[in-house]
Write a protein that binds this DNA or RNA. Structure first.
Lengths: 344, 344
DNA sequence: TTGTATGCGTTATCAG
DNA sequence: CTGATAACGCATACAA
């Protein structure tokens, strides 16, 4: 038994009408008589006719679906973004197709090519932590394919971008540590290829500079996979803790970096914040349970997804001149928990 | 500037060939001369031709994509399942479209109808916690549309199903508590409409019975939204803690139920396991950080996604007689942490 | 008001 | 070996 769907033809045949009449009746065209309309609509309802979106796509050269490229959906930051994307897409009758790069450049390229081969009308992208070469995206963009970047954006492409003010997030977090009396603040950062990493490091460094504190290059440790792999973070912390001047505080620059720092400390029975303080970027809804001592930088992920999708749909539907590309910068929020610092 | 894709026609025109020749050359048909093939392939590569999957879908009456209906992707159990699904789908050249019900029946119905209107070849479903009426799925199934259920399955429909042995998971967890000396074990359960809830409660009750312990009906509290809403869990725990005979241990029957129990205890400064023990279902990769005292039932989510997808693809491609439907039951695993119980 | 013919991009069938 | 044509389901310009 094969699944055979009802088409406009079936209705036409059953009712002794032509397909065009049926088509027009279904679309409530003004040129169809009320009686015919009623007839067609009733029959369509009866046999539960649904238009074939694929045929529509072929005809209209649009699929009413948008693609999303993220590293992982099992990451609260990104799943919140996806919920934001979904909410807007849904309201505009767009379907959403999610593809994960798992932080692999090769996978990202394959996904982009698959999605973009005209089964989607536009693309929302947050690049993988390995991505340096952008020709898979540039190629599309050059041909006029609508692309909007969010969070992990790229400088080399001129299109809409939505980001969080990473500089400010890192600046505020670092300053919070400085104001609490910490003198040796290290930074566990993500992939050095990512825009967000650079911005966060800049914020961190500026906060130190503004407070007349030295920049110690060995205090910055990069994790290529953004903490997706525990061992990365372990290595970084090992490096930091064997320095002559051990840091007394750490800034975790991503969700998984922060939680893996916690895991490391727990394993080694290092007390937070007594032995070392930790402040980190995190969108987990579990931070209150994770550690009594976790001050976090939280990002407006849902809103970010909404804004990016809104911009993308405008691009797709050409509602605004294609030349005034926007870069929206959203404010992060520092959630301070008093117990996150040792009063010095 | 509109995105115009290159088609087989463009190649034909440019090369002075017919579309059929180009089509055959691209598919490496035996009836095309090597020179022509080389010519076509080279040109196609040069202008980076990609076949239009929508046209293919229309022609072949299949989209090579499968739909997934889950309650939330921001749930580690489900995101692990999705990763499993993706891995198999990917290997079989299937695309995956994820839709979230957010535990709403109405949303589930809309999603199913949207997906099933022939933009997908099959459906993987884990029903929402509100779902009782199944006509949205039955209707499809009756018309021969391939559906496979996973985790939250339904009895009334005869198709492949993949589940975890929920009875055993709950039985083992309960027995662990009994063996550790607890006498008054309560159960924070999910929606009473869900198969998994019933199975887990059965396992819990059987463990009590086998150990000659009384069944106290007021020890079982249902949460319609499976803990997605904190207040649900708060209410349930309030009920339990105002009982004359307060429970000395709790079995949390889902990821979010378990974490929200922890949250409740933390807020009220109730010590686990000294004041009350907690054992729960959880697929979070953060349980080691959440509480030193958390013994968990972990489910093989990734494998579940893989198996369900494998079965679905077999259904879609009719590789097996449609009548021998399988119900695969996977073993859960109890991760015991010694500190999760008070030695009595 | 309704019907006929055409095209969207591709492949299969048939002819040459 | 290659080309013309029909078909997938739908919408629409054009005819009637």
């Amino acid at each position: 038994m094969k699944f055979e769907a009802v088409t406009i033809k079936d209705i036409a045949k059953a009712l002794g009408l032509s397909t065009s009449t049926v088509s027009r009746a279904l679309r409530d065209s003004y040129e169809i008589s009320p009686e015919t309309k009623k007839l067609v609509l009733a029959y369509a309802e009866k046999i539960s006719y649904r238009p074939n979106p694929i045929a529509l796509s072929l005809k209209e050269k649009r699929s009413r679906s948008i693609g999303i490229i993220v590293c992982e959906i099992a990451n609260s930051f990104f799943s919140q973004i996806i919920n934001g994307i979904e909410s807007i897409a849904y309201n505009n009758d767009y379907n959403v197709i999610i593809a994960q790069s798992h932080e692999s450049y090769d996978r990202e390229v394959i996904n982009v090519q698959y999605l973009a081969s005209r089964s989607i009308d536009g693309l929302l992208v947050s690049v993988s932590s390995e991505t340096q070469d952008l020709k898979h995206l540039k190629n599309l963009h050059d041909r006029g394919f609508p692309i909007v970047f969010f969070d992990r954006i790229v400088d080399e492409m001129d299109t809409h971008k939505v980001i969080v003010d990473n500089f400010k997030g890192a600046y505020d977090a670092t300053e919070h540590l400085i104001k609490s009396g910490y003198q040796h603040i290290a930074n566990i950062a993500g992939s050095e290829y990512l825009s967000i990493t650079k911005e966060r490091i800049n914020g961190y460094q500026q906060a130190l500079a503004d407070n007349h504190m030295p920049l110690n290059p060995s205090y910055v440790q990069y994790c290529l996979h953004g903490g997706m792999v525990y061992e990365e973070v372990e290595n970084s912390l090992n490096q930091l803790l064997k320095l002559k001047k051990k840091p007394d505080a750490i800034l975790g620059c991503a969700d998984k970096l922060t939680t893996n720092c916690l895991r490391y400390f727990k394993k080694r029975k290092i007390k937070v914040p007594d032995d070392i303080a930790l402040v980190g970027f995190s969108n987990l809804d579990l931070t209150d349970l994770l550690s009594p001592s976790l001050t976090v930088v939280r990002q407006p992920a849902f809103e970010m997804g909404q804004i990016a999708t809104d911009l993308l749909i405008q691009l797709i539907e050409s509602k605004r001149p294609v030349k005034d590309f926007e870069k929206r910068v959203l404010p992060p929020q520092l959630f301070i928990r008093e117990s996150s610092v040792k009063q010095k």
